[in-house]
Design a protein around this nucleic acid. Sequence first.
DNA 1: AACATCAATCGTAATATTACAATATAAATT
DNA 2: AATTTATATTGTAATATTACGATTGATGTT
Lengths: 109, 109
Amino acid sequence: MGLTKTEIFTDEQNLLSTLFKAMAHPARIAILQRILKSNVCICGDLVSELGLAQATISQHLKELKTAGIIQGTIEGVSVCYCINPKTWALLEEQLGGFLGSYKGEANCC
Amino acid sequence: MGLTKTEIFTDEQNLLSTLFKAMAHPARIAILQRILKSNVCICGDLVSELGLAQATISQHLKELKTAGIIQGTIEGVSVCYCINPKTWALLEEQLGGFLGSYKGEANCC
DNA sequence: AACATCAATCGTAATATTACAATATAAATT
DNA sequence: AATTTATATTGTAATATTACGATTGATGTT
């Protein structure tokens, strides 16, 4: 036990939950907000700005990269991160469909 | 170590990540989709429909309830679940703001 | 009252996550 | 070449998650 049974779910369910999971931590939200704020790429000032150790930030960045939500390019000594537009579009599309499928009412509960 | 440092993040960051976390599992997406599909409340046919044990489904339902995303009312022997409209609205609002803040371009990476 | 039904809770094993120190790697500077 | 700077990786401890069997609790039926 202890491991998710991905095989019994649809691709859509697995995709959505994977994207959610990638963002299911305040540090990763903070990182994304920071990237979104400075519309351009942000070269890791993240360590000094967030109150977490460098290794921890690097680990969170890796998770966001693995999920395809951000991408990084080496810029001399440092690395620049920005949103992966393709995944962001997918996210908007998937979430729009998911959230939008609620026909709010049916006040039974 | 091993526990998230919520105190160093903003309320918004913690809220967003909590909502994401609640949906960061394919079974919970499946449960939500099932509830959304049958616009009305669904009395736990979930155990027979998803391929997970009753205890596991119950555990997932609890997480969704704790996050405030769904609510359940006792209906005789069984329990009826439906979306919590307030949280769903909050979710749409928060996610809209978050996803919408991406001014796609700045093609640097 | 005894029994059946549905859902919640408890206990627990397997696995994943979070955080950080220490170390490694890689590029720029001296 | 040695040094600095920025980031990634490794190792590890603490904690959380996932799944399920077994049990309990609560409501309806016989």
